[in-house]
Design a binder for these strands. Structure first.
Length: 921
RNA sequence: GGGGAAUUAGCUCAGCUGGUAGAGCGCUGCGAUCGCACCGCAGAGGUCAGGGGUUCGAGUCCCCUAUUCUCCA
């Protein structure tokens, strides 16, 4: 049952701040979002859907700002989608994670409302609309608003003052740190202007301090991108000036709903209620610490649900690690609140329910999200349990305090949170050396940082630079395998260059290319570039072998080596793809499509792709499936695919609008981003997928398809590896190379090998056992015969004589000899001093084994087996040791054995006759 | 990308500074019982992840590989 107490609707309705005509004002999060987008849509902006939290840009882990999806547009690397755009973009930031729940408005997951101008309208228009939206649509009173402008931006100030009519005292100038935006050390940048909400306008207009976040909250940031900064730091005006703005949805919700912090808005509060109900607590009745925990859970629950929804899975690196950390924080705070059973699925369900209207794909991925949450939670509980055991071990030693090193080891190696260590230590009346912990943590940070610098960035950097400036490469490889191409840029050994000569390892950018660039799971083509004189034959003056082609943004990078001649930027070369490699890749790629279709047909229509690799000699297909595919199903799949192959379906490949493709039923990958016009690969009646890869013209070209293995790769994800086309032959050859020699070796038909090997293994095991038994029996027999040779020497403390036995016993291994010695010693009683030596191996006459077994009385009298046998072994060119009662040694000088044994006998004889106990009794 | 750990019986794990691989649970058989659960006794079950090295001798020390966990970036 949901908690009583806060009722958002009631609270918001009771809020008088925004004044007039409450009825029409947006209030709920959804209304605010809709109002913002509508406002700008009405003003000519193209409404853009929120991009994935996983960005295209490989240099950032997550979408951290509303403008990130438009960064390539601002940087001039991509065509603008429209002159103006508006979006509500989901974002994740974790740099201030410790503040979440403690302050009023720190989030990991948040939504950024934005309006963007790409070389279209600028400062004046942006400012006016921002003001109009804030006051007219959201109904904020100008008395409650304060704006900031950049220190030097007189233009902006003039607009605010004169065009908008803001009280000059409520226009505050700020420095670079707050009001100047740049995406990096170089590139487009410009001043900002922000709008703040003033919760206490009655304090007046004098001495306004916008840093005071108990009074002010910044809710709208306008960036005026008007300069380009070069490497020297010089600013030059941009020809096309841009506008980039952001309004925090949660912040506006807080203002309009009149709640004291973002967490109590309708965007998050229902999750707090869910968590409170699970913990059986009342949010309003809790102390600050408890409320913080609920806020953290509410905030993080949204973040982890959305992250998994965008295809992130928990792992120990990159964004997967961010997910894991967030998720574990939720569990920890849940425990702090007293939730002692798994509850993440419940939080996930509540998060999906809360956000499904704005993000319908959460519903599509519901099962996956819940499964991932449950899986990770279980894993974390295991981690905690292990950590608790380890900590209990530490505490069992009754230490005075838990050292920083111990706490750090628990954390670093076993993932056990410091807070929990502290908590448990406290229960035992101990403290934790947190300073030592921090020191160890800092050391670890420095180590990681130092290592990060040493990465060789140069190669990648050079290519990045080249790719950023080069025109998109025209791909001709669908139609042709050979094409004349002009060299646009060169990188030699990681350095940009204008020329490269024989022997150089190079990366080339061409204006157009028939080479497929690695992407969509398919490997890049191999082949050659020919130039100079006769460009049609391998006798060409210039030969560059291409070993791989990758894509950097829309530029294809050909990597290879110059075999002959030299290449200069501007050269016209003939690019020729290795047709045989390409054919193999094509066969594997089309086969991958057939495999997916077959899986859907045989196993589950709901199967979705989770990853794919198309290489020249194999293919790998990962897919979402909760159970293993049975051998019978695999056979069925193979048969189905080989049937489609023999039916010789002609492929139909065409480009069409994305909507048309989806309407036609083409399979698109979840979370994948597609352009407006997509390529559809259709095997009529069998499979239809959006795909940019290269394919056979007819399924018959594939020839044959064979599954090599089926395995699990992660919970809920299975992997099938297979081969198709010419690669099958290579696979068969490989197998034959194993089977043939085996068949010959075992003189068996290939079909009989398995049984034969199993039989041999059983026989071998039985033989080994029998041999070991026989050996120990033999050793025992030989040993008991030796018992009679024992020599009574001196007298022990109890008056009985010591029983000295030094003998040679060959052909017995170490364990046997030890067993024999122990047996003899037991037989001879507490006064037994048994030393056995022998050559275990009739072939290797150098190897010596020595064993000593001493009874209690002997040890009491002085001689210890370990030290004694070591001395004896020295005479045989070896060493040894062991416990006082039983020891083993070895040596390499078999010839010296008899002498050594004789010496040992004498030494023991002397030691035992003169033993302290000898005279007594 | 850089650290720290783990991998031993079907499962959960002990195994100290190198010296004959163990426990609990599970399994099999026997006993006890009218029968079951419980109990008692006995037994089977191991390439100590794989490969190299050091050593007379490696589960144990060193290096490499694989897989998994974990922290930092």
């Amino acid at each position: 049952m949901p908690l009583q107490g806060l009722n958002i609707r009631a609270m918001a309705a009771a809020t008088p701040r925004t004044g007039r005509s409450q009825a029409a004002r947006p209030r709920s999060g959804a209304e605010i979002r809709a109002a913002f987008l509508e406002f700008y849509e009405q003003r000519g902006h193209k409404r853009m859907a929120s991009a994935s939290l996983v960005p295209d840009d490989p240099t950032v882990l997550l979408t951290i700002a509303g403008m990130l999806p438009f960064k390539p547009v601002f940087l001039g690397q991509q065509q603008r989608p429209a002159p103006r755009a508006t979006s509500s973009q989901k974002c994740i930031r974790t740099n201030d994670i410790e503040n979440v729940g403690r302050t009023a408005r720190h989030h990991t997951f948040f939504e950024m409302l934005g309006n963007f101008s790409f070389g279209d309208y600028f400062k004046e228009q942006a400012i006016q609309w921002a003001w109009e939206l804030s006051t007219e649509v959201f109904g904020l009173s100008s008395k409650n608003l304060v704006v900031s402008v950049f220190r030097d931006d007189d233009e902006a100030e003039a607009i605010w003052r004169e065009l908008v009519g803001v009280n000059p005292k409520r226009i505050i100038r700020m420095d670079e740190a707050d009001n100047f935006w740049a995406s990096g050390p170089t590139g487009p940048c410009g001043p900002c202007s922000e709008i703040y909400y003033d919760f206490r306008p009655e304090l007046g207009d004098d001495g306004i301090d916008l840093e005071d976040d108990s009074r002010f909250i910044e809710f709208y940031n306008l960036v005026f991108m008007q300069y380009n900064r070069d490497a020297q730091g010089t600013l030059t005006p941009l020809a096309n000036r841009n506008i980039d703005t952001g309004m925090g949805l949660e912040r506006m919700a807080q203002i309009l709903q009149g709640v004291p912090n973002n967490y109590e808005t309708d965007l998050i509060y229902p999750l707090i209620e869910t968590a409170a109900a699970l913990a059986g607590v009342d949010y309003r009745a809790l102390d600050a610490k408890g409320q913080t925990s609920l806020k953290v859970i509410g905030d993080h629950a949204r973040a982890i649900t959305q992250l998994i929804g965008d295809g992130v899975t928990a792992s120990n690196l990159g964004r997967g690690y961010i997910l894991r950390r967030l998720l574990r924080r939720v569990v920890r705070h849940g425990r702090l609140l007293g939730i002692d059973k798994p509850f993440l699925s419940a939080m996930g369900e509540a998060s999906i329910a809360l956000m499904q209207e704005a993000y319908p794909q959460l519903v599509e991925r519901r099962e996956l999200i819940l499964a991932e949450l449950a899986r990770e939670e279980t894993r974390f509980l295991e981690t905690l349990e292990r950590g608790e055991t380890l900590l209990a071990n530490i505490l069992a030693n009754k230490p005075r305090l838990i050292s920083g090193a111990q706490a750090f080891e628990l954390y670093d190696t076993y993932g056990f949170p410091l807070e929990l260590t502290e908590e448990i230590a406290e229960e035992h009346g101990l403290t934790v050396d947190t300073a030592g912990f921090e020191a160890a943590m800092e050391e670890q940070r420095q180590r990681a940082k130092a290592a990060a610098v040493s990465i060789d960035l140069t190669l990648q950097e050079a290519i990045d630079q080249v790719a950023a400036t080069a025109e998109a490469t025209a791909f001709k490889g669908y139609e042709a395998l050979e094409h004349p191409s002009c060299v646009l840029a060169l990188v030699v050994n990681g350095e940009p260059a204008t020329q490269a000569s024989a022997g150089d390892s190079v990366q080339l950018v061409l204006d157009s290319t028939p080479f497929y660039g690695e992407g969509g799971g398919q490997v890049g083509d191999r082949g050659v570039l020919l130039g100079g004189g006769d460009q049609t034959s391998v006798d060409a003056g210039v030969i560059v072998s291409i070993e791989g082609v990758s894509r950097n943004r829309s530029v294809f990078v050909h990597s290879g080596q110059i075999e002959r001649g030299s290449v200069t930027v501007g050269d016209l070369l003939t690019a020729r793809v290795d047709a045989s490699c390409r054919r193999r890749a094509q066969a594997n790629h089309t086969a991958t499509h057939l495999l997916q279709a077959a899986l859907k047909q045989v196993v589950d229509p709901g199967i979705g792709q989770a990853g794919s690799l198309v290489d020249f000699d194999r293919l790998r297909f990962d897919f979402h499936c909760s159970r293993a595919v049975t051998p019978a199903e695999l056979e069925q799949i193979e048969a189905l695919i080989n049937g489609w192959i023999s039916e010789a379906h002609g492929l139909v490949v065409q480009e069409m609008a994305i909507e048309a493709a989806k309407a036609a039923g083409a399979l698109a990958m979840f979370g994948e981003k597609y352009a407006d016009v997509v390529r559809v690969v259709d095997v009529p009646g069998v499979s239809m997928e959006l795909c940019g890869g290269t394919h056979v013209a007819n399924t018959a070209e594939i020839g044959v398809f064979k599954i090599v293995s089926e395995s699990g790769v992660a919970a809920g994800i299975r992997r099938i590896e297979a081969v198709a086309g010419p690669a099958v032959l290579a696979y068969l050859k490989e197998r034959e190379a194993v089977v043939k020699p085996l068949a010959e070796r075992f003189k068996a038909q290939p079909g009989e090998i398995v049984e034969r090997v199993a039989q041999l293994a059983d026989e071998l095991k039985a033989t080994q056992k029998a041999l070991a038994a026989a050996r120990s029996e033999l050793a025992a027999a030989k040993a008991s015969a030796l018992a009679a040779q024992a020599e009574a020497v001196g007298a022990a403390a109890d008056g009985a004589p010591f029983q000295l036995l030094v003998a040679r016993l060959d052909g017995v291994d170490g364990a046997g000899l030890q067993g024999a010695a122990q047996g003899l010693a037991d037989q001879l009683g507490e006064g037994a001093a048994v030393v056995l030596g022998g050559l275990p191996d009739p072939v290797d006459l150098g190897k010596v084994i020595l064993v000593a077994a001493f009874g209690k009385a002997v040890i009491a009298a002085g001689p210890k087996a370990g030290a004694f046998i070591g001395g004896v072994a020295k005479a045989c060119g070896g060493g040894g040791g062991g416990r006082p009662n039983l020891a083993q040694a070895g040596g390499r000088d078999g010839g010296a054995l008899d002498g050594a044994l004789e010496q040992a006998r004498e030494q023991l004889h002397t030691a035992l006759s003169g033993a302290p106990g000898a005279g007594q009794g």
